[in-house]
């Protein structure tokens, strides 16, 4: 028998054993006995060098073909055996094993949501210092010298004639000072007040203020932007109620209620059965404020508004204790994705 015949016999044998193999292990045995280091086909290929040159090519080709064919058969057989035989089992109810994610603090999530909504309406974000001068926090904002907010009972004072800002409105003054209209800005940030810490009050709170100064800005524009914000933030069906109010730095001023986000205005515990939730203060920037920063209040007008982030977060997520925000208990933090 020639070597070529040997090859075809080996191939047939291999095919037969492949067809009989009933496990991946058995298939592997076949592969080893024919194609492994000491396999029968491998032996032929190894001995090619001993053959005369003219036979070498022919037998080499045949052996290589046989090897390929056996490999192909083994692969095909594997497909038929399927995975059931592989003894692997997947339990899809087991938790996945990716790295657990951390959580962005809920106050920052809400602040970002508010800022993004206003950014979408063309408000640029600006920041200012937490430790402010009396001038920026009060005087330039038209607070009279003996206004109660300037009292030690309401405001935290810092050694060296500074205050911890009581609102982010000082940033409005700083930006109005260094820019020219049109100016359209929101100012998120931390604020402080002299208050005993309780479930409903804290020494620190987070505010987002916003303002627009340009020619021809009116209460009507202010209402428009706040209606647009509230619809984007609380949903299309939300209703707004503007109640005239008083702030030293705006005139006319108003406080804004939205229809209760829980009951829609029918009355429930959240809105204390009034149907409304107070969420922000607003008004037209007082001409004194514009004149103080050197903007001609006859030519330019502007509006301003401010909202408390904790209050909105508490309403939206039904959080009943303001202290939770600054306690940073991870069981609290991890509730808000």
């Amino acid at each position: 028998m020639s070597v070529l015949d040997d090859i075809s016999v080996l191939m047939e044998k291999a095919f037969e054993r492949i067809s009989q193999a009933d496990s991946l292990a058995a298939l592997n045995d076949v592969r080893v006995s024919f194609l492994g280091k000491k396999g029968k086909i491998t032996a032929i290929l190894k001995d090619l060098g001993k053959l005369p040159v003219e036979e070498r090519r022919q037998i080499g080709a045949a052996a290589n073909n046989a090897r390929s064919a056996i490999e192909r058969r083994i692969e095909e057989a594997k497909d038929h055996l399927g995975s059931g035989d592989s003894r692997t089992f997947i339990d899809p109810t087991l938790p996945g094993t990716a790295q657990p994610l951390g959580h962005v603090h809920i106050l920052n999530q809400v602040t970002d949501d508010i800022c993004r909504t206003f950014y979408g309406m063309g408000f640029e974000i600006a920041h200012g210092p937490d430790i402010e001068t009396d001038y920026y926090n009060f005087e330039a904002l038209n607070f009279p010298p003996d206004h109660p907010a300037r009292d030690m009972q309401d405001t935290l004072f810092v050694e060296g004639e500074r205050v911890l800002r009581t609102h982010t409105t000082p940033v409005q003054v700083r930006e109005l000072e260094r820019r020219k209209p049109p100016i359209k800005i929101i100012t998120p940030g931390r604020c402080f007040r002299n208050e005993a810490i309780s479930t409903r009050a804290h020494v620190a709170f987070t505010q987002v203020d916003g303002f627009l100064v340009d020619e021809g800005i009116s209460v009507s524009d202010l209402k428009g932007v706040l209606v647009a914000f509230c619809k984007a933030f609380f949903g299309e069906d939300v209703k707004l109620n503007f109640r005239p109010s008083f702030f030293p730095f705006t005139e006319p001023s108003a406080e804004v209620d939205v229809s209760c986000i829980l009951c829609g205005g029918k009355g429930c515990q959240l809105c204390k059965y009034s149907g409304w939730l107070e969420i922000l203060g607003c008004g037209m920037i007082d001409p004194n404020v514009l004149d103080t920063v050197g903007i001609d209040s006859e030519k330019y007008t502007g509006y301003a508004f401010g909202l408390g982030v904790e209050r909105i977060a508490m309403l939206k997520y039904k959080i009943n204790d303001i202290r939770l925000f600054f306690n940073n208990d991870v069981r609290f933090l991890s509730q808000f994705k």
């Binding site: 959580h103 603090h105 106050l107 920052n108 931390r190 620190a204 933090l333």
Partner: peptide
């Protein structure tokens, strides 16, 4: 996890 402190 992100924490937020008031700084006082």
């Amino acid at each position: 996890d992100e924490i937020v402190n008031h700084g006082l």
